[in-house]
Structures are given as structure tokens and as C-alpha cells.
Design a protein around this nucleic acid. Sequence first.
DNA 1: CAGTATAATAACCATATGGTTATATAACCG
DNA 2: CGGTTATATAACCATATGGTTATTATACTG
Lengths: 127, 127
Amino acid sequence: MANNVNAAQRLDATFAALADPTRRAILARLSLGEASVSELARPFAISQPAISKHLKVLEEAGLISRGREAQKRPCRLVGKPLADISEWLEAYRRHWEGNFQRLDALLDELKAQEPQAGAERPEGGSL
Amino acid sequence: MANNVNAAQRLDATFAALADPTRRAILARLSLGEASVSELARPFAISQPAISKHLKVLEEAGLISRGREAQKRPCRLVGKPLADISEWLEAYRRHWEGNFQRLDALLDELKAQEPQAGAERPEGGSL
DNA sequence: CAGTATAATAACCATATGGTTATATAACCG
DNA sequence: CGGTTATATAACCATATGGTTATTATACTG
């Protein structure tokens, strides 16, 4: 599996694409079904070329695909990169689900007690 | 709930923070437990200030918190922003889980047949 | 107090990003 | 063919990003 490198680059592109509210809004719109560029542009106060650039970013991240229908170039959401992110997130789930943070702090505390019992604790005393 | 705006900004910051492989590697390391800045820096071929910048980005996105222990400033993973992303992702789950994409394409096809049966189909013929 | 270790900040640089306006393509319509 | 609609590209601009080296701040240590 030497495409681990590529996997990282795809994550880069996907996260970067998602780091913009306009692009996330476009995806939200596309989650309701395919739409043309001008339909996608309508809700926004920015120029059409700006939308085209956003779509290019989304397309290069693999988050949308484009068809062709007369002059229109209908865009469609592609879920795969989101699935990849979801999978990446799983490794961290325990950090927000359940008491992991508390547990982590507890381990720290124990480690801190090793040298001196009753030592001062600047952080994380709130368990 | 007028903090919808802020929620979007937090998503911006989180996604942007995650769009860098060095920062994701730092998070991966922190998922094993807290670590000092120099410990975090060790695996990378970049300067210490560069690491400090990355940590600042992560901290501003709320992805890490920092304590203090002598000269060291131990960093610890904070899962909350990842939970927020996970929640945001849920809206799109059906797009990669199950046949949604196929279904979408099918609807398109039906729509395309409307004008002319047997018309050429430039995209998405591979179902 | 002087020295050392850990980390942050400043100043700088190159490239990326998000926007603009103007222009070019592409495909339909009469 | 000429016009119109839909979209992309070019050229430009301001700001953000990720890196560097040099310097500063903080806290332990002898």
C-alpha cells in the first residue's frame, strides 16, 4: 500500500476544499440533487468566475463531478472523499465520545505524582 | 441559535487546520497522549518555529490545549472540533453509504431519455 | 547570577487562495 | 451566420499560508 502518500494528499485536498463556507454551501445544495453552475451561483453575492473557481477546487478534490447538458454543466456531489474523511475521523472518535479526555488527564496526574505527591497542578484539575 | 455563523467559522478553522499533513501527524501523535513541543517536532524535518506555528493553528481551531510543566508546554488533543466535523459529515452519509449515487445517476438518465430515447450519454454510464 | 533548555515571536520570503473585471469558448436559437 | 446563454480562462490584486533565520521570553540548574 504505497499509495499512503496519495491518500494523505487526497485528504489535504478534501479538507482544504471543505475549509470554505461557500464551498460547503455548494455541497449542501448539491446534496439535494444535481445543479448547474448558474443555479449554484444564484444564492451567493460573488461573481460567476469566483463560483467556477470554487467548483474547480471541489472537482479537483473529487467532491463533485460534472456532466454536460446543452450549454449547462450540471454538477453532482460525489461522496467518496467525505467517506474517506469519515474513516480518518474514526481514529479519534474515542477522544470525544466518552470520558477519554478525563482519562488522559488522570494519567497525567498519576505521572505527575510520581516525583512528588501533592505537587501543584496548574491545569486540568476539574475532573 | 444565531451562533450558526460562528459554527461555520469554527468549521472553517477546523477544516483548514486539518488540511495540512504535518498538523494531522501531530494530532495522530497526540492521540497517543500528551506531548511537549520538542517531542512533537522531533519526527519532522522542519524548524521548531514552524512547529510552533502549526501548534498555534491547531490551538486556534480548538484542536489542542496546552498546559505548562517547567519549561515545557505539553499539548493535548481536544476532540470536540472533530466531533463537530463528524456531525457535519452525517448529512452526507447517505451519499457514500448505499446506492445514493447510483440512484441519482438513474434519475438523470430518466430525465435524459425524456427528449430522445437512446441519446448519447457522455458521463456516468458505468452502473 | 550565568548558563542551558524549551518554546514563542519577529521579520522576511515564496507561493497559494479568493476575489475582481474583461475576454474567450461552447452550444443553443432564429 | 449572428445573437444569446452558460461557463471557463486570463490577468490582476490583496491577503493568507508555510517555511526560514534571528531573536526573545521563560523557567530550570549549578
